[in-house]
Amino acid sequence: MDAMAIVSIFVLAVFVGFEVVSKVSSTLHTPLMSGANAIHGVILVGAIIVADHSETNLELGLSLAAIVLATINMVGGFVVTDRMLEMFKGKKKGADK
């Protein structure tokens, strides 16, 4: 890929990243961290790509380990974030009681 295009993508993504979380109440710090944590689990895509073109057993073994770790990160991350956020809803239920 063209180096300039990559730099542009990088710089723009930095600003978007700054912008989207600049105003967030401390209540949501934990779920937000957890959600962002799940998003970087998308390294799973990278792990599958390297597993696909692994040539030696060593390469394959390492990339399979990467797939296991990345899957734990991604899937576990989204599930645990959802569980945290589940606690926030249900205020209406409480009012009905």
Partner: peptide, 15 residues
């Protein structure tokens, strides 16, 4: 991966 990683890097720093 570049977009996702950079987003998390930037927002994580702010956070």
């Amino acid at each position: 991966l570049i977009i996702a990683g950079t987003l998390v890097g930037a927002s994580g720093t702010i956070l």
